[in-house]
Amino acid sequence: MFNPNHPDSDLFKTILEPLLDDFEYWFSRSRSLLEEQHIPFLSADEQKDLLQRVMTSQQEVSTVQALLKATGGQAGVDSSVLVTWHHLVSECWQVSLKLRSQQSS
């Protein structure tokens, strides 16, 4: 949680809100890809697992956004969670790039 009296609390809010919007955007795109496309280099179980992790992360991002709104920007998220989300977005980007590369050749 943020300390509202901490001088950096506005900075955290200024950075965290757009970052959460970015995660929301990329998880949405990744979810669409995984739901609508057959990914030939992933097994059905791997694709299902990746989709489930994306959906779970989407829910987590939505929860944090709701908490930020409900607390007037005084809620936060542990940096380890942000790192996990970042790794998942990177994994989805790699899948998308590989799929696009295979489709173009």
Rank of each mutant, 00 (worst) to 15 (best):
N3P: 03
N5E: 14
N5P: 00
H6Q: 09
P7V: 07
S9I: 07
D10W: 04
D10A: 12
D10T: 05
K13C: 02
T14I: 10
E17D: 13
P18A: 07
L20V: 05
D22T: 11
Y25V: 07
F27V: 00
F27R: 01
F27D: 00
R29I: 03
R31P: 01
R31S: 14
E35K: 14
E36F: 04
Q37W: 07
Q37A: 09
F41H: 10
F41V: 05
S43N: 06
A44E: 15
E46C: 05
Q47C: 04
Q47N: 08
Q47G: 04
D49I: 04
L51Q: 04
V54F: 03
T56D: 06
Q59P: 00
S62D: 05
T63P: 00
L68P: 03
A70L: 09
A70E: 12
T71P: 02
G73T: 03
Q74E: 09
G76I: 05
D78A: 13
S79K: 08
V81T: 12
V81F: 03
L82W: 01
V83D: 06
T84F: 02
W85H: 06
H86M: 09
S90Y: 06
E91R: 10
C92W: 03
Q94P: 01
V95T: 10
S96I: 03
K98E: 14
K98L: 14
L99P: 00
S101F: 15
S101K: 15
S105E: 15
